[in-house]
Design a protein around this nucleic acid. Structure first.
Lengths: 111, 111
DNA sequence: ACAATATATACCAAGTGTGTTATGTAATCG
DNA sequence: CGATTACATAACACACTTGGTATATATTGT
């Protein structure tokens, strides 16, 4: 199943899982224990979503399934957000809004 | 209502709306007409989600409600994704996985 | 005041996501 | 082989999302 990366990272738990995996690979059970409020099958399903989005890979080692980060597809998110980078740093959006407002007298913040 | 930015941008239509707003502000109706497959109330609700996530602001001008980008909160997304930037460029994650695999003889790609 | 325009909300149906418990499956140990 | 460990899947409940139609609200034009 082909899943949308944006949807996959919409869940806070899954983002935290990726954060853990960015340091090193971890077994499914180890990840589960890192989130005590979620059941084992619950974590297994989160891992499935991440797998189907192509954000992690799995490696079987003896009895364990080790998940590791596969970051390529995060590039899609980065590419999208890149278009906005600089906006919140330079407050360019606020400036633009201000200028737009001034084009319509009486609507924006009057000088 | 306080909404999660990641959830707000999980929807493709809403991302496209933000893309349109990144160029210039637009009236709600104008945005609606840009997505003919979505009804007027449908677009209105998408705009509400973006509003509640703090991703847009609204300005009333005569009969129109002009939406404009408010990019600050996109910084949250950028901050998160920044931790991964460089991973997919340098293939650092793949290298790491390879090394991890070699630590466990017989499990990874044999030399 | 009344009609028209522009947008939002109410309401309902259908789909999807998340979480649970119970169960299945694969690998390892004795 | 039977038990145990590690993980995935099945089946189900429930909340949330999305999209539609109908309606409300606000502003402007006549």
């Amino acid at each position: 199943m082909r899943r949308d990366v944006f949807a996959a990272i919409a869940d806070p738990t899954r983002r935290q899982v990726l954060d853990l995996l960015s340091r090193r690979e971890r077994a499914a059970g180890e990840l589960g224990r890192a989130f005590p409020h979620i059941s084992q099958p619950g974590m297994s399903r989160h891992l499935r979503v991440l797998r189907e989005a192509g954000l992690v890979r799995v490696r079987q080692d003896r009895r364990h399934r080790f998940y590791s980060l596969r970051s390529e597809r995060l590039g899609e998110v980065d590419a999208w957000i890149s278009k906005y980078r600089g906006f919140w740093e330079t407050e360019l959006d606020s400036l633009e809004a201000y200028l737009d407002a001034r084009k319509r007298p009486g609507a924006g913040p009057g000088a």
